[in-house]
Every structure is written in structure tokens, then in C-alpha cells.
Design a binder for these strands. Structure first.
Lengths: 329, 329
DNA sequence: CTGAAAGCGCTTACAG
DNA sequence: CTGAAAGCGCTTACAG
């Protein structure tokens, strides 16, 4: 039975936990901060009390006693569109998750050479590409790094772009589409590339070709996708199904189709990626759990600050079928 | 002479200020929080010490002693595009400014009826339109409100959209353009409407007409602007100068012009609004000082929390002439 | 009008 | 391995 947690309800403090577990507050603190040298039995007692009382440390108190707040740098590759809805959303979730632990997220701009212009106690890197120079640069300074992407031996998390691309392909194939078009983001970036590769791979397995003329660069923008599709249409390219590597691009694709007199999903089926409600609410798309990716990144960040060994985690995606895909006529 | 302020430099505390001013820390706190009942002379001594030592209160300590952090709700009208770069940037600046004072900015979603879905200790409302229902709704609950926009008798701040629209017009007129096109955002919103009205007003004063056919709704999106202009061009509308109510739309305008074989600024001059570096870096535009608007909003928010009387402030804008405008040939 | 002191909720040497 | 206590930088009754 849960008490209604009013804004004004007396909050559970570390002292409550200590009392409940029959130990001192210092010990509770040690357990919570994973310091070595606590007997397993006491640790368990503490952890049990923590979860029973639903204790959540006060960020301000923590920050104050730590002397200075840890600052987490948020850096997006200059080749990526800094204001993409996905990054914005990701940063919002991440900031909220970090705030709970007394960590501050700071957006750091790029230097002319593309590296972060300021320092921080740890970094989250987004808009990752292979051989991303930022990783080595930060490592050289001994600054912990967490990637929204992936790289061997690093700390990273990402949505399952590979499975997402595959699911989009399978869905379209199941509906009988074989003349497929793919609108990509920046293929130099991991997200776009992984989606593309998995999409094409799944088609190949099914014996369906994806000629170069049907792979269009939409640059992860609505207008980019619109122009690319419109040009393709004018150039005589034909297709009955489209996979766009983001919902914004799916929007552009649909607009281009409509402007050309084609109907969605009557004439052409369209699948997006991300599942951002503000982009076409009837869109069939691959949902990625931004909040979960952000929460995982926050956890990795905290581990990195404690010097724990690197690990990585792939967050599952899910195909959400709505109104922009239909069986081929 | 300023000391290099290392991350590790001993920070100036309220105690240092108290000592320097020859008073107790309690008194310094009273002055800083504008509590009544401090002798003018002592107040001045404290303020002098504060600025001489460049004292900046520690947000965490403040939050801790205040018992619970104040939460500021950030709400954008559902009719506005939540992920517009401008809002994102504004929220970033605002969040940073508030954090310094131990205030937390929380993005709050909309209910189906468009009102904020959660409560907070105070609200910042963006995407304002006339007779905005959110204002009365929050007032009725006694929640302080600050507007990024304007309304009689309220606390508000905004960039000088009116002067911005005028400047865009004057610039184009000075270059000899008289066949002008305006691409608007959502005219139901104040920002778009004020810019439009001022632009048209300035033209009228100069005896230059702006027929309805040359006022296009771009919906504050790149693609919206692109399609609107392209359609106008196909419909035979002619013009040599364009004012787009945002840089994103200016981008779309330029793309549409180029796709139609027109050159910028050779054939057509284009002026944007905002001055976001990521949108066309050679763009002639009206710069608004987002950081300043955000800082002002933060100040108003703090005043509202202290129950001070409402006031409002217009932040000046500035025309930045770059490569997308030229003299009419 | 202002000072001395308690308290906010944590962390971490310091003992033991 | 763990407790008692000091300290982080503020605010605010409580006295005077």
C-alpha cells in the first residue's frame, strides 16, 4: 500500500534508512556509493530498507557535501543536426535522470575542428560515427566517456538500430512490397548506417534487391527527405514501400508523395523511425525508448565516475503499426 | 584584475561576504533575498562586498536549506512545434539561468485541452497567442506565470518582434526591392503575427503594397516554407525579396528558390529571423538575443516567487546583414 | 534592525 | 568493518 506522495509529505532521509536497517548513516552512504568494505549482510539490510522505504537521496544535499557538483558534458557531433527532436528529447530525459543524482548536464559546443570546446567531469557523446575522434581526445585527458552509439571496449548504449531496420523490412515484405525505397540519414553516422545496413540485409535475405537508385540521402531532415523523394519521383524511380530512417524524414516523404498525387498508404506504404508523436501521429514506425536509453546512459555515467569497468547495453525497439502502411494492391 | 577562476579555486561563500561587509551571514542572506527590514546603509555595504568579491550563491546549499526545490514548469502551446530549435535553445538557456538559483526547469506536457498537464511552483509559457487560456487557468490556481510573449498586466518578456519585422522591411526597401513576399509562422501566435504586422506596416508607410497572394503560411517549418514558396512560384507569383519569420523557414525558402532555378541573392533576396547559426550560415537575418530573453524570464520568475509586482521587458533585436540580400538589379 | 545558532540531508576522514 | 561527528553553504526562527 503506497501513501500518496504529496509534495509536502515528509521525505524519507538517509537517517530513516539507517534507523530501519539498524546501522549508522555513514554506513548507508557507503552502501549507496558502492564503497568497498561493507559486510555483505549489512549491505543487504541497507538495500532492503532503501527499497522498502523507497528512499531517494536528496541531490542538493549530496552535491553540497561533495563540495562541487559533477558536470556532465553533452556533445553532439558537428556533422549532426544539433537541434534534431531526438537529441532534444534525449537530452531532456538525460538531464532529468542525472539531476536526481546531483549531476548537471551541460551542452557543450564544438571547436572548429569538431571536438568539444569545453571540459567536464564526464562526457556523453551523441551523433557517433566510426573512428569518432572525440573518444580518443577525451580518453587522452582521462575524462570518462559514455557513447550514445557503440564502439569496441567503450561504455555505450544505443537503441537497437539493427533490429529496427530489420523489422521495418520484414513488415514491408510481409505486406507484399518488393519495390522498396530507403531514405537515409547521414550514412557517416552509426545510427543511419546501422538502420540502412540492417534494412538492406533483411531484403537480401528475402531475395529482394535494393538498387542504389532507391537509396536516397535525406540528411535526417524533413526537407531533405522531401526533396530527395520528389527528385526520385521526377526521375522515374518507382516503388510501393518506403523506410525512412527517422519520423521527420517520413513526414517529408509523405508530403512529397502527396504532392506527386500518390496516396499513403493507398499507393505507397511508409515506415518511419523513432516514434515521436509530433511527427505524423498516424505513422507506422519503429519506436525507440528514448527514456530508457537516457536512463541507461545516466547509469553508465555514474559508473564511469566511480571508475567501474566499462559495459554496454542495447535497448530493444518495437515496430508500431499504424495508418501509413497497407498491403500491396 | 581578475583571478583565473579555476574549477578548483576556493569559492567565495556567504561568510566571506559577511566578513568583508562587517555583518553576519544572516544579514547578507536577508539582503540577497530582498527581505524587508535591513538598513539602507548595511544593504549597500553588503551589495558592495557582493559585487567586489563576485559572490555567487551556491545553488545546492540554498536548495538544501530551503527544504524543497522550487519547480518551474516550461509549457509550450500545443499549436506550436514543441521541438522548434528556438524553444530548445530558449529552454537550455533558461534552465541554466535557473539552476544557478537552485530552481529546476521541468518541461510539462499538455492535456488534451491544451492546458499544462502538471503543476509547478511557477510557469513559463511559450508559444503565446492572444487570449491564451493558460494564463487564466494558472492564475485561478494562484500559480505565478511568466510569459515569453506579452499580455496586459502580466509578467512577460519577449524579443522585439515588432522592431524586427520593421527592420527586415526597411532593409529590403533600402536595397530597392518593392515586390516583396512574406512567409509567416502560425499567425494565431504572437511572434508570427507581430512580425507580420510590423513588416506589412513598414511597407505601407513606404507606399509599398503587400497583397495577400504574397503572404504565405510556412507554419514555422522548413518544409512548410518550401512548399508554400514552390507553390507560389508555380502559381506565377513574382517577387524579388522575401522576409521569412524564422531562419528555418528562410532555409526552406532558399531551397525552393534554388529548385526553381532562381539565385539568392542574385535574383531574390532573403531575410530570416532568429539568427541560429545552424540554419544557413550566410543568412541575412534578424538576430534575437535568446540568452538575454531567457535570463530576463529567469529574473521575472524569481520575482514572481517573491511576490513582487509584475513588470515586463522587451529585448532589442538586431539586423545582421550577410550574404542572402543584395541590391535589386 | 541584526547577530548567534540550529538545521537542511548528505559524505568522509577519524577512531576504534 | 562501522559509528560518531564535523562540515558543505545556505536560511530562518529566535532573541535582543
Amino acid at each position: 500500500m503506497k501513501r500518496a506522495s504529496h509534495q509536502t509529505a515528509a521525505r524519507v532521509t538517509i537517517e530513516d534508512v539507517a534507523r530501519a536497517a539498524g546501522v549508522s548513516t555513514g554506513t548507508v552512504s557507503r552502501v549507496l556509493n558502492r564503497r568497498a568494505g561493507v559486510k555483505a549482510a549489512t549491505r543487504h539490510a541497507v538495500l532492503e530498507a532503501v527499497s522498502r522505504l523507497e528512499y531517494r537521496p536528496d541531490a542538493a544535499a549530496r552535491e553540497l557535501s561533495l563540495r562541487h557538483p559533477k558536470r556532465i558534458g553533452f556533445h553532439v557531433a558537428p556533422s549532426s543536426t544539433r537541434f534534431s527532436p531526438f537529441y532534444t528529447l534525449f537530452a531532456q530525459h538525460l538531464s532529468a535522470a542525472l539531476q536526481e543524482s546531483g549531476l548537471r548536464l551541460e551542452t557543450v559546443p564544438s571547436r572548429p575542428d569538431g571536438l568539444p570546446a569545453r571540459s567536464a567531469d564526464a562526457f556523453v557523446l551523441v551523433g557517433l560515427h566510426d573512428d569518432d575522434a572525440r573518444i580518443g581526445y577525451l580518453h587522452a585527458q582521462g575524462i570518462p566517456v559514455v557513447l550514445a552509439g557503440h564502439a569496441e571496449g567503450e561504455r555505450w548504449t544505443r537503441a537497437d538500430d539493427v533490429d529496427g531496420g530489420r523489422q521495418a523490412a520484414l513488415h514491408l515484405l510481409r505486406l507484399g512490397h518488393t519495390e522498396l525505397l530507403h531514405v537515409t540519414g547521414d550514412l557517416g553516422g552509426q545510427a543511419a548506417f546501422d538502420r540502412f545496413r540492417a534494412f538492406r540485409g533483411a531484403l537480401q535475405e528475402a531475395g529482394v534487391a535494393l538498387p542504389d537508385a532507391r537509396v536516397l540521402d535525406g540528411g535526417f531532415t524533413t526537407l531533405g527527405a522531401y526533396r530527395a523523394v520528389r527528385r526520385a519521383l521526377e526521375g522515374g524511380v518507382t516503388f510501393t514501400g518506403v523506410f525512412a530512417a527517422s519520423d521527420e524524414m517520413a513526414c517529408g516523404v509523405i508530403a512529397a508523395l502527396e504532392d506527386a498525387g500518390l496516396r499513403v498508404p493507398g499507393d505507397v506504404s511508409v515506415v518511419g523511425f523513432d516514434d515521436l508523436p509530433e511527427f505524423g501521429d498516424g505513422l507506422t514506425t519503429v519506436r525507440q525508448d528514448v527514456a530508457k536509453v537516457a536512463a541507461t546512459a545516466a547509469a553508465l555515467l555514474k559508473e564511469s565516475l566511480r571508475g567501474e569497468p566499462p559495459r554496454s547495453e542495447v535497448i530493444p525497439v518495437q515496430l508500431v503499426v499504424r495508418g501509413t502502411t497497407a498491403r500491396r494492391r
